[in-house]
Design a protein around this nucleic acid. Structure first.
Lengths: 151, 151
DNA sequence: AAATCGGTGGGAAAAAGTGGGAACACGTGG
DNA sequence: CCACGTGTTCCCACTTTTTCCCACCGATTT
């Protein structure tokens, strides 16, 4: 699936050239159709091939509407989910509202994360990474799922 | 179905241009007929294609009439439900009472939420969203459906 | 060195959004 | 019952945005 960190640029119209190594896979998987939405914890965007997203959307839709936590998640994720399509030169157009949410300026980082990409403003990505490295994980509570993890 | 966040404007007559990407779907699903009503928890409007609404109304009507919570929900939702129709240029007219309920001024956000839209005053939407993002979800009770959710 | 490929920019055509005017319907009061 | 005023609906025209397409530039390959 998708791996790796790529420096990309957004031009003045908000267009982003998808690195070529991913293009073929995206086209064969979803005919070039992608969904971008916001991440609920960090100021970055999540980009899924359409079929991947549809599974997630289904799960979200099934959550109870009257539960406030579920409602919040739906509003953030489904509420911001925007259809994107690779154009004839392999670019996608990031709409202004999402650009704004993730404070995207000209240079950004596109991070492969398995079934999706994350798109970060470059400066924010670098800063955040420094933060993550600084945190002393040994001092933290590990959730049980992590206790047995072997890397 | 419906997803994504759209900035829309209400003109001086209270008309709202439905973003074109939704129009076709609305016309084929309900011949352009929609129902708007109020949200029970937030100051926003809910907009359903007519068939979707009819299902919801049925569910609401089946609730026990003697239960005060159910009664309240019925009064709010069914009581405020208003028929809307896409006009020849794809606009709907939001009646003054609903405009008032949701404190809608000139710029608003139309949020796709699967089988319906939510319509928020722009400022209120932005403020609310910031609130939702601030909440530390790990500190909250998660409904069991969410525990295993993998995005 | 030429050709190809990936990335970038910009211009023109098309489409969408916006505003307003005129015609029509409606209700009210004389 | 008619005249008037208000509010609604329909339609047209203007402006802005979006989309599509083509051309250029630089790097890499043959």
């Amino acid at each position: 699936m998708f791996r790796g960190a790529n420096k990309v640029t957004l031009d003045s119209k908000g267009r982003l050239a998808m690195p070529t190594r991913y293009r073929e896979r995206i086209v064969e998987r979803s005919n070039g159709r992608l969904i971008a939405t916001v991440d609920r914890a960090d100021r970055c965007l999540l980009i899924y091939p359409l079929p991947e997203w549809e599974e997630i959307e289904l799960k979200l839709r099934r959550l109870p509407t009257l539960n406030p936590v579920a409602r919040r998640l739906q509003r953030l994720m489904i509420g911001h989910a925007t259809d994107l399509e690779l154009d004839s030169s392999g670019r996608i157009l990031i709409p202004p509202s999402l650009r704004e949410y993730a404070t995207l300026s000209r240079t950004a980082m596109l991070i492969g994360q398995g079934n999706r990409f994350e798109l970060w403003d470059e400066a924010l990505w670098n800063d955040s990474r420094e933060q993550w490295l600084k945190v002393d994980e040994s001092a933290e509570e590990l959730p049980p799922e992590l206790e047995s993890l072997s890397l």
